[in-house]
Design a protein around this nucleic acid. Structure first.
Lengths: 409, 409
DNA sequence: ACTATTTTTTTTGAGGCTCGAATTAAAGAG
DNA sequence: CTCTTTAATTCGAGCCTCAAAAAAAATAGT
C-alpha cells in the first residue's frame, strides 16, 4: 500500500508525477503539465518554481510556436547540466560504457573486449571501474557531476539491484557490483538484468506499442525475458529475472546450459540451434562461443531449404511459442519484441512461434499478437540503463529534496 | 500510479488503512491502531470519531484486560449491524449461498442442486436470484441491509468482475452476472473466479504463511490457480483467471477438456487420472461426471500399490510439478496450497510434485517449499467471497463517504 | 500608436489534513 | 484521597491543493 500520510507526501507525489511526465515527453509547458497531471495551474507553478530554483528544470527558449494570440507558453525541460549518469554494460568478454546528461543525451561512449570468464571477480570489478573512470576523464566530466551509475548485466540479479547472482559470463557465483563500485564512484550504483533494460528502452521508445503489458525476449546465446504486466516489471521474489528461457518445454528433454533438461533455452538458443543443425545431439555440451558467421551460415542454409537447418529453427520457434502460450494462459496475450542476433532469423521463427501459440484454447487469434524484431540489442540495453539511471536520479531528487547523495569512502 | 492529489485524498487513504487493519485483526484499540498505521494518535481519534458517528465502527465492551494501571483502552470493531453482504457460489449442478454480517460472521447459509448445463442463461440467472432472495427472506434480513453480493464461479471471469467469460458449468459462452443480478438485488454485484476466492480466504485465515507471494491450486474436475505475487492477485489483461491448468506440459500430448493437447490439466485433473487408471487412452474424451467413489477407489488402489493407479498419480504430480517449476523460473519459489478433493491423494502427489520441481536449476531446495493440503474447497470459496464482498463495502464506505450505493431499477 | 482580446502564469485566501504538545479522562497503587 | 500511569482528545502550527482574481505577455484591430 502506498504510504502517503502527510501533506508533504502529497507534494512529493505530485512532484514525482510532474517529473515523470517531463521525463517521458522531454519538455512541456506548465499549462500542458496541468492538463496531463490533473493538478491545478497554481500547483504546477508552485512545484515547477521550486524545481527551477534548484536548477533541476530549465526554461526552454521559445520554440516560436504557431503565431497565435495570448501570452506565449514557456516550455520546461530538464537541465542537461544539472547532473549526468553513467551506464556500464557487462557482457561475455565485452564491456560497454556510456555517459548521458540529465536530459538523456549520450555524451560519451566506449567499449572494450576483456576475458570475463577467466579473471577473478576482484580483477573484473577493478577493470570495470577503471574503464568507466577512464571514459569519464576522456569525456572531460568531473565525478562531481555524476549522480548515478546503472550496470546492465547478462544473468540473474537480485531484486534489490545490488549484485549479479548468477551469470554465464563469470565463473564466480556472485558479483557484488554495487558494494564494490559505490566506494569508487561515490554515487549510487544499481545492477539490472539486460532483458529488463531492453524492455525499459522499448517502453521508452515505443510507448504506443509497449507500455503496460508486453515482453522483450532476447534471443542469443541464451534466452532471456523482460516482462511488464499491469505497467510494472515482473520480478521474482528474490531474483530480478523472469527466467523465461528456463521454463520447461519438454520434460526430461534436451540438455540446457543450466544443467537441467528440457528448458526452452535448450531448444531456442544459439547453441541449441547450432547443435541441432550440426547433428551433435540434444545432450551434447552447450557451446558458449559460436561465431556469428556460423549462425549466419545456418540461417542461409535454412533459407536455401536445407531440411536440418530449417527444422532447427522450427523447433526453436515451437519452443518459444509453447512458452508464450503458457504465459498467455496466465496473463492473457500481449505484444512481444524479439531482440538480438536470433531475430535475424525472423522469417524462419515467426511462423512456428505463431503456430505453437495457435494451440491456445482461449478466444484469440495468434496472428493478432503483435511481434516485432530488433537485431541489435546493445543500443537497447544502453538506452534502458540510461533511462533507469535517470529515473533513479529523479527519484532521489524527489525524496531527498535534491540533496546530492554521495557515498562515503 | 496512485492518485493522491488533495488533502481529502490523504484522509481517504488513511481511513482505508485503518479499516483494512481492523478488517484483518478484527478489533483493536486506538493506541494500537496508531502503532500499526504509523499515524499520530490525534489523527486516529479524528478518523475513528467520524466512523463511530456514522455507525461503521462500534466501541467494544471492555475485554477486562490484564489489570494494569492507567486509563483502560477502548477496543473498536466493525458494527455487525451496519450492513450485511451476500455470497453466491455457482458450481457444476450446484449452488450455495450465504449471508454474513458486517463483522464477517456468517448469519445464514443454504445450498441446492440444479442442472446448470442444460438450462438457459436466463433461467439460470433467475434461479440464482430467486434462491438467494429466498435465503434472505428465510434469514429474516431486509434487502435494505444488503450492501454487496459477491459471486464465486468456476471458470474464467473478466477482469472487471462483471461476467463469466467461459466455464465448464454452462453451455452458453458468457454469463452477464453483474448486469442481470444488480437490478434484482439493487446492490453492487461482483463476479470472481473460485480459485481466486480460495486464495483470498487462505490469505485471510493464515496470513503468516500465505500473504504476499503464494498460490492456491484447485485439484478437482479441472486444475485452477489463484496466485498472489508482491501482495497482489495476478490477473490477466482481460480475464481474471491465471489458467495454470492450461499451461503446456507436454507439447501435443494428452487431450484436454479445452480441446487443446498437452495441458497440465490433461494429466492432473480427475478426468485425466481416471482415464489413465482405466486405460482409456490419453486422447479419450474427458469425462465430466466422475463420482467421488470412483476417485476414492483409484486412490485406494494406488495405496495398495496397484501400478496403474500409482503411476496415474505420479504422472499428475509430475505435470503439476513441471508447471510449478516453470512458474518458479518466472517468479521464484513460493508456498503452495493444494485445495479440493484431489488433495485427498496428498501422499501420492507430493513426492512426484517435489521431484518435478527438483529439476530446477536455481539454488533452492524443493523440500523447502511449503505445501499444504485442504480437502474441502467449499468453505474456502465461501469465505473468500464473503471477505471480498466486505472489502468492497469498506471501499465503498471510504470513497463515497458512507452513502449507500443502490442500483436503480 | 494604442486599445482590446486572448492565453499563460502567478498571487492570494480559503479549506482540509496531519502532527506535536498540552490537556483531559479513567483507571490502579499506596 | 492523592499520586502515578496509560489512553484519548483538544488545539494551534504548518503543509498542501484549489478556485478565483490578478498580472503578464503576446497578437489583432483600428
Amino acid at each position: 500500500m502506498a504510504n502517503i500520510v502527510r501533506s508533504d507526501d502529497v507534494r512529493t507525489q505530485n512532484r514525482a508525477k510532474i517529473m515523470a511526465i517531463l521525463r517521458m515527453k522531454g519538455s512541456m509547458s506548465r499549462t500542458k503539465l496541468a492538463q496531463y497531471t490533473g493538478l491545478s495551474a497554481a500547483t504546477i507553478t508552485a512545484i515547477t518554481a521550486d524545481l527551477l530554483e534548484r536548477n533541476v528544470l530549465l526554461r526552454k527558449e521559445a520554440p516560436k510556436t504557431t503565431n497565435s494570440r495570448g501570452r506565449p507558453r514557456v516550455t520546461l525541460t530538464f537541465n542537461p547540466e544539472f547532473a549526468c549518469v553513467g551506464v556500464i554494460v557487462l557482457q561475455l568478454n565485452h564491456i560497454m560504457m556510456s555517459i548521458a546528461d540529465y536530459q538523456g543525451s549520450t555524451i560519451f561512449t566506449d567499449e572494450i573486449t576483456l576475458e570475463t570468464t577467466t579473471i577473478s571477480s576482484e580483477t573484473l570489478l577493478e577493470k570495470l571501474a577503471g574503464f568507466f573512470l577512464a571514459g569519464m576523464r576522456t569525456a572531460g566530466i568531473s565525478t562531481d557531476q555524476l549522480r548515478h551509475v546503472a550496470v546492465g548485466v547478462q544473468g540473474a540479479t537480485d531484486i534489490h539491484a545490488t549484485k549479479l547472482r548468477w551469470s554465464p559470463i563469470i565463473q564466480h557465483q556472485e558479483l557484488q557490483i554495487k558494494q564494490s563500485l559505490e566506494p569508487v564512484f561515490r554515487v549510487p550504483v544499481s545492477v539490472h538484468n539486460d532483458c529488463n533494460m531492453i524492455a525499459q528502452a522499448l517502453r521508452w521508445n515505443e510507448p504506443e506499442l509497449f507500455h503496460s503489458d508486453f515482453a522483450a525476449i532476447l534471443l542469443s546465446q541464451g534466452i532471456g525475458m523482460g516482462l511488464y504486466h499491469n505497467g510494472e516489471l515482473v520480478q521474482g521474489k528474490r531474483s530480478s529475472a523472469t527466467e523465461f528461457g528456463h521454463m520447461t518445454y519438454i520434460p526430461n528433454g534436451a540438455l540446457c546450459r543450466c544443467g537441467r533438461h528440457g528448458c526452452i533455452e535448450a531448444y531456442a538458443s544459439e547453441y541449441a540451434i547450432y547443435r541441432n543443425a550440426k547433428m551433435l545431439g540434444d545432450n551434447s555440451e552447450p557451446c558458449s562461443d559460436i561465431s556469428q558467421n556460423e549462425m549466419d551460415e545456418i540461417i542461409a542454409q535454412a533459407h536455401d531449404n536445407v531440411a536440418l537447418a530449417k527444422s532447427s529453427y522450427d523447433r526453436a520457434g515451437s519452443a518459444i511459442g509453447a512458452g508464450l502460450a503458457s504465459l498467455f494462459a496466465l496473463l492473457d496475450p500481449f505484444p512481444i519484441a524479439f531482440v538480438g542476433t536470433g531475430s535475424k532469423a525472423k522469417d524462419l521463427l515467426e511462423n512456428s512461434i505463431r503456430a505453437a501459440i495457435g494451440e491456445m484454447p482461449m478466444s484469440f487469434q495468434p496472428d493478432q499478437i503483435s511481434m516485432r524484431f530488433y537485431e541489435d540489442k546493445n543500443p537497447l540495453i544502453s538506452d534502458g540503463c540510461a533511462v533507469t539511471a535517470l529515473i533513479e536520479v529523479d527519484k532521489n531528487i524527489n525524496s531527498n529534496n535534491g540533496k546530492v547523495l554521495k557515498i562515503a569512502v
